[in-house]
C-alpha cells in the first residue's frame, strides 16, 4: 500500500454562444444630463461579473471612465431582450450589442462636442477619463459632462444608442449533420498532478497547470476567477459529485451538502495558469466565452493522472475511492499469471 503520484494531460475546445445560434441580445444606452451613461439590459449576473465586463466594454467604446457607466439590469419592463446567461454567451452577445449601441451614442456625443468646439467631429477624440479633445490641439477640449449638458439643454439631442447582436439561426441538415453551431471556439490544456492512496482509494489533486486561449481577456482578474473556480468545479466533478451515487439505481441520493460531496477548502490544489489571446473575428474586442470551459479540461486530466499514478483506468464519473479500489483490484487480478 502506497501513495502514488501521477500526471495527466487533457486538451479541449469550447464553443461560444448558443448551439446553432439564433440567440440575440440587446442593449440600450443613454447619457444623463451630467455625462454619465446608463446601459439598460435584461441580462443576468450569476456571479460571473457581467456588470463589470459590460462597464469596461461601454467605457472603451465611448472613451469615458468606467466610473461614468451604470449598468441597469434586469427588468423586463425597461430592459431590452436578452436570451439569457448560459452557453458562455453573455460577454460575446451582450458585449457586441453594447459596442453597437455605444458606437451610435458616441457619434451623437462627438457631433455635439464638435458643434460646441466649432470643429468637425472627425477631428475629436476621447481621452478615456471624461474629456473630448481636439486632435493635435492641446488645451482645446470639452468635458463629456459639458457636452451632455449642451446636448440636453441647448441642442435638444439625445445622446443614446441601440444595439443588438444576433448570430442567425443555423438549421442542421438532418441527413449529414452539416451545420454552423458556434461563433468561435476557446481552448484549454490542463495538466493534473495527483496522489493516489492505494490503501483507501483516496485521490488528492496536488496541482492543476493550465493554458487557456480565450480570444481577449476583457478583465484578467475575472478570467482568473473563472479559472480557479472552474478548475475547482472540474476537480469536484471528476472525484466527488453526483446526485445518484449508484446510477442508474436511484437509491442513496443525497439531499444536503453532507451527502452531496464536493471538495472543501482543505482539498484544493495549487493552481498555475497562463492565458493566450487569439482574438476571434466576431467577439467584442476578440473575446470568446471562458465561463463554462474552465471546468472541462481538469476532469480527464485528473482521470489520466490517476491512471499514470496507479494503473487504475476509470471510465465512469465520479472517480470515487470505491471505484479506484475496485479498479486496482481488477488490475491486480488481470496481472496474475
Amino acid at each position: 500500500m502506497a501513495k502514488l503520484r501521477g500526471r495527466g494531460i487533457a486538451a479541449v475546445n469550447y464553443p461560444t454562444g448558443m448551439n446553432l445560434g439564433g440567440d440575440p441580445s440587446q442593449a440600450l444606452i443613454h447619457a444623463t444630463t451630467t455625462g454619465n451613461f446608463v446601459v439598460t439590459l435584461s441580462s443576468v449576473d450569476l456571479g460571473q461579473g457581467l456588470r463589470t465586463i459590460m462597464t469596461q466594454i461601454t467605457a472603451e467604446v465611448l472613451g469615458i471612465a468606467p466610473e461614468a457607466v451604470m449598468i441597469d439590469t434586469a427588468d423586463t419592463d425597461t430592459g431590452p431582450h436578452c436570451m439569457g446567461t448560459f452557453a458562455s454567451r453573455t460577454t460575446h452577445r451582450v458585449g457586441n450589442a453594447i459596442i453597437m449601441a455605444a458606437t451610435e451614442a458616441r457619434k451623437v456625443l462627438l457631433d455635439v462636442a464638435g458643434e460646441e468646439l466649432e470643429v468637425a467631429p472627425e477631428d475629436l477624440e476621447t481621452d478615456g477619463t471624461g474629456r473630448i479633445v481636439v486632435k493635435g490641439v492641446p488645451g482645446k477640449s470639452i468635458s463629456v459632462q459639458d457636452a451632455a449638458l449642451a446636448a440636453h439643454f441647448k441642442h435638444g439631442r439625445t445622446i443614446s444608442g441601440r444595439g443588438i447582436y444576433l448570430k442567425p439561426r443555423s438549421y442542421p441538415d438532418f441527413e449529414t449533420g452539416a451545420m454552423d453551431p458556434d461563433s468561435c471556439q476557446a481552448h484549454a490544456c490542463t495538466i493534473a498532478e495527483v496522489e493516489v492512496d492505494t490503501e483507501t482509494g483516496d485521490v488528492r489533486v496536488l496541482k492543476l497547470i493550465s493554458a487557456y486561449e480565450i480570444g481577449r481577456a476583457i478583465n484578467p482578474m475575472m478570467v482568473e476567477q473563472q479559472i480557479v473556480g472552474g478548475s475547482w468545479m472540474g476537480m469536484s466533478h471528476a472525484l466527488y459529485e453526483t446526485t445518484e451515487p449508484y446510477y442508474p439505481n436511484r437509491a442513496h441520493g443525497p439531499v444536503d451538502f453532507l451527502g452531496y460531496l464536493m471538495p472543501g477548502p482543505a482539498d484544493i490544489p495549487e493552481y498555475d495558469a497562463v492565458i493566450l489571446e487569439r482574438p476571434s473575428t466576431n467577439g467584442p474586442f476578440g473575446a470568446k466565452g471562458i465561463g463554462e470551459m474552465t471546468a472541462n479540461s481538469p476532469i480527464p486530466a485528473i482521470a489520466n493522472a490517476i491512471f499514470d499514478a496507479c494503473g487504475a483506468r476509470i471510465d465512469d464519473l465520479p472517480i470515487t475511492p470505491e471505484k479506484v479500489l475496485r479498479a486496482l483490484d481488477a488490475a491486480a487480478l488481470a496481472a496474475q499469471p
Binding site: 456571479g47 468545479m233 477548502p265 482543505a266 493552481y271
Partner: peptide, 13 residues
C-alpha cells in the same frame, strides 16, 4: 471555513 460552501470561487481566494 470548512462549514461554509462556496460554489463559485474554488475557496482559494
Amino acid at each position: 471555513l470548512s462549514g461554509n460552501v462556496c460554489r463559485c470561487t474554488g475557496y482559494e481566494p
